[in-house]
Design a protein around this nucleic acid. Structure first.
Length: 190
DNA sequence: TGCGAGATCCGCT
DNA sequence: GCGGATCTCGCAT
């Protein structure tokens, strides 16, 4: 676990696509992530530690959970100090009925975990999990994945600075993404 | 000391 | 498509 997260966040973010992630047995496959580096103007760590972001400077392989817009929780996996990977979407697989109940959504399963705030709501992730290691309960992170994962990337969503780097990653063709990735440019005549 | 923006989501128009 | 809910922080006053 330590080796995995002691790499640049934009590498870890790609390696996490297709991995299984559970909280108390409830979860699914990671299909969308974003990387935030220490010297990254879009990162919460950019101006140094505060009471909110202190766990972002903690051990690699721990959780950084913060409240977004005063309402929603967002989950990050801490990499090297000041860098982390934001979990943006899961493909629901285990205890999906529990997610439905927590979300109050009984229709389209794509509505359960297709966004950072939806994901934490479905898995019941809150501030009490901030700073906890990912290799112990209630977390279960399985880093092994199939060799056939096809990863796409693009610029990050919902930010106004650091928009130049393409550090959002996703499972190609997944219907469970929060936002579609732009289709690769096609050649004239296609 | 106050104000506005922010790694968001939802319901209404 | 737009605004409201409402916590934290940076920056201006």
């Amino acid at each position: 676990m330590g080796d995995m997260f002691s790499q640049p966040a934009h590498i870890v973010a790609q390696n996490l696509i297709g991995c299984r992630f559970l909280v108390d047995g409830c979860g699914g496959l990671i299909v969308e992530t974003e990387a935030y580096e220490a010297d990254d103007p879009a990162s919460h760590s950019f101006r140094g530690p505060t009471t909110r972001n202190k766990s972002m400077f903690g051990r690699p392989g721990t959780a950084y959970v913060y409240r977004s817009h005063g309402l929603h929780w967002c989950l990050n996996f801490v990499c090297t100090p000041g860098s982390a990977v934001l979990l943006r979407a899961l493909e629901p697989r285990w205890q999906v009925d529990v997610m439905r109940q927590r979300r109050g959504r009984w229709g389209d399963p794509r509505e359960l975990c297709s966004g950072p705030g939806k994901l934490t709501s479905a898995l019941k992730i809150g501030g009490e999990l901030d700073g906890l290691p990912l290799d112990r309960p209630p977390f279960e992170l399985t880093l092994e994945r199939g060799s056939d994962v096809d990863i796409v990337n693009g610029t990050r969503v919902g930010i106004s600075r650091g928009t130049d780097v393409a550090w959002r990653f996703g499972l190609a063709g997944s219907p469970f993404l929060s936002v579609r990735f732009p289709r690769p440019p096609t050649r004239a005549g296609d």
